[in-house]
Nucleic acid binder design. Structure first.
Length: 445
RNA sequence: UCCUGAGUAGCUCAACGGCAGAGCAUCCGGCUGUUAACCGGAGGGUUGUAGGUUCGAAUCCUACCUCAGGAGCCA
């Protein structure tokens, strides 16, 4: 009796009779010899049908299979260096084949396609090898991000997605009708995290967040996933030490589990092996100096203009990329001007024009993957900041309460899942890092 | 929102003022070791939409639509 196996485990069944269930990924028709490349979700295996070794009705099925036809195949596993597939090196000599469905003409071929076409067919594109590899790595990144926190004393506390008012900036929120009232899709769980630390100490939330920014770049989505740790009694240095441990652990977990997928993606593994603590720390002041120096050395006027920066301005993506390229690991940039950061960030003592904030910039031009800070814990200062930026204090009454009943210094950050996946996988565009991307011009499928 | 570029067969592209083409996919035929196999044959078109210039427009002009790349904004 054949054993039902996962193709991913095929190497354990050399010489045995097995059954695999899946879809035809590609086929090479050599007449009396059919090479069927079969996917089952765990891997891809070559299954070989010889006319002489099969009943004629079964061989006819093997000949008739179109791309993505579904089937159940039984045969003997044998090692063969020529056998393609993932993991590869083993193939199934077919003794029996049962057809489930001959697929209709399948639109996606194993060749180059345009972006629009692939995104229109995303529900089918997820079956393709590269997408399979990326989404498997994404799943591991998410579980590694969560497991590390769970193992280090952080507690998952879910925060709401339907919220009554702005998290940070009202202009970038998706507004919905909530029984006649205005509600917004959450763009951060941080403020709720700040409430939760007073009950649980170290917490995190993980979920989708929504930004109604009309951003049209390779690193923006309207709906993206973010994990946000928040810790009582953490200062900025504690935060950076935690982040570098955290990020490094996640990268190393992907390296352990996904050599094969990284190979499919042709990722330069050495760049990932290098991701270990500590990461460099530079201040915003130093970053601006480095950018000014870099711009001074450049002749191309266009590039020079791109890198122009005056103290007090926020970094655009050319700036972030240029700074990140100066390091071969992620780099922390600290103490940004308060004016370009959120109202709740703690000012630096004696220098209130900058705040105790830290962004982590990924190498190879992948930009900001985390953003965090120490939060203001003094009730009067927080009230003053709320008044200064002109947001309505009623909406933040509960947030101010947190500073009234046992306030403590605390810090936290948010990590964007998709940017992290893009960086670790080495992808040029964030749209492939999430199963169904929601972008400025994309809500289907 | 701004700048730049592109829309031709199911897909990827060619034809750039004078007959609408190729490769892949599909269908038919051949092949016992293929790696996006190969060889032979067949079917497949409102050239993004609307208007204009011209004897004649896929090609030139105008507007609109869609998409891509970049900027801004951000994770």
């Amino acid at each position: 009796m054949a054993t039902l196996i996962n193709i991913g485990d095929i190497a354990q069944y050399d010489g045995q009779e097995v059954t695999v269930r899946g879809w035809l990924y590609n086929r090479t028709d050599k007449g009396r010899l059919q090479f069927l490349l079969v996917r089952d979700g765990t891997g891809v295996a070559q299954c070989v049908a010889f006319k002489k070794e099969l009943p004629s009705d079964m061989f006819e099925i093997a000949q008739a299979l179109t791309q993505e036809s579904s089937m159940i195949v039984t045969g003997t596993v044998r090692a063969d260096e020529r056998a393609p597939g993932y993991p590869g090196g083993f193939e199934v000599g077919i003794t029996s084949i049962e057809l489930i469905q001959i697929a209709g003409e399948y639109p996606i071929q194993p060749k180059e396609h345009g972006v629009e076409f692939l995104m229109d067919n995303r529900h089918l594109w997820v079956r393709s090898l590269r997408q399979w590899a990326i989404l498997r790595i994404r799943a591991t990144i998410i579980s590694a991000l969560r497991n590390w926190l769970d193992d280090h004393g952080y507690m998952l506390v879910d925060t709401p997605i339907l919220t009554p008012a702005a998290g940070e900036n009202t202009t970038t929120l998706f507004e919905i009708d909530y029984y006649g009232e205005s509600a917004f899709l959450a763009q951060t769980g941080q403020l709720y995290n700040e409430a939760n630390i007073a009950s649980f100490g170290k917490v995190y939330c993980f979920g989708p967040t929504f930004r109604a920014e009309k951003s049209k770049t390779r690193r923006h989505l309207m709906e993206f996933w973010m994990i946000e740790p928040e810790m009582a009694f953490f200062d900025l240095e504690d935060l950076m030490v935690m982040e570098e441990q955290y990020i490094s652990a996640v990268v190393q977990t992907v390296l352990e589990k996904h050599r094969m997928e990284l190979e499919i993606l042709e990722r330069d593994i050495s760049k990932l092996e290098n991701i270990t603590p500590p990461f460099a720390r530079i201040s915003y002041d130093e970053a601006v100096e480095r950018l000014e120096k870099l711009a001074a050395e450049i002749d191309d006027p266009e590039r020079k203009a791109e890198l122009a920066i005056t103290w007090g301005g926020d970094f655009g993506s050319p700036h972030e990329t240029a700074i990140a390229e100066m390091f071969d690991k992620p780099v922390f940039v600290t103490n940004y001007p308060s004016a370009v950061k959120a109202f709740y960030m703690q000012p630096v003592e004696g220098r209130p024009e900058v705040c105790r904030s830290v962004d982590l910039l990924a190498p190879e031009g992948y930009g900001e993957i985390t953003g965090g800070s120490e939060r203001i814990y003094d009730p009067d200062l927080l009230k003053q900041r709320i008044d200064e930026i002109g947001i309505s204090p009623e909406n933040y009454a509960w947030y101010l309460d947190l500073r009234r009943y046992g306030t403590v210094p605390h810090s936290g950050f948010g990590l964007g899942i998709e940017r992290t996946v893009a960086w670790i996988c080495g992808l040029p565009h964030i749209r492939e890092t999430i199963p169904y991307a929601r972008m400025l011009n994309r809500l289907y499928p």
